[in-house]
Design a protein around this nucleic acid. Structure first.
Length: 145
DNA sequence: CATTTGACGAAGG
DNA sequence: CCTTCGTCAAATG
């Protein structure tokens, strides 16, 4: 499970520990991921290559996530592009639904999926659309101003 | 099974 | 800008 940064650190901590009572002790086992994430938010071009546990997701969602993971750092694609990729051209809205349930934001870089008209679309993690924009800016994915 | 609901997109005001 | 309509997987009833 991934929680992206929230304005209030304590609130986030509380949320984490309510899910994982042994979070502190187990942390060393996921040092790699923690390091990667922290480097990412320092502005580094981090690749993220981990085997993800997606067995609780539907077949369709897994297909969407697999394609989403092919969008590399600093690039963006639109919802309909993904729709084509998973074989439902015209189903952009269904893509949005699937991405809205992304259990592993950042590792599954749904923030790189934006609207065709240049709008950013949505972002369901706590940081919301503000955070999505920040991440894209950091990646240098937003061309102008 | 029938409806409703969206992180969409195109077309036409 | 805005509205309407087509679209499709999931959630809901």
């Amino acid at each position: 499970m991934i929680y992206l940064p929230e304005p209030q650190k304590e609130k986030l901590k509380k949320k984490l520990f309510s899910c994982f009572r042994n979070a502190e002790e187990g942390a060393h086992r996921i040092k790699g991921i923690i390091g990667d994430i922290s480097n990412y938010f320092k502005g580094e071009n981090v690749h993220f290559n981990y085997v993800l546990d997606l067995k609780s997701m539907t077949y369709f969602q897994k297909k969407v996530y697999r394609e989403t993971m092919k969008i590399s750092y600093g690039n963006t694609r639109c919802y309909n592009w993904l729709a084509e990729k998973v074989g439902i051209s015209g189903g952009a809205r269904a893509i949005g639904n699937a991405l809205g349930k992304n259990p592993l934001p950042l590792l599954i870089p749904c923030h790189r999926v934006i609207r065709k008209n240049g709008m950013l679309g949505g972002f369901s993690s706590p940081g919301g659309i503000i955070l999505k924009k920040k991440m894209l800016l950091m990646e240098g994915a937003l061309a102008k101003v």
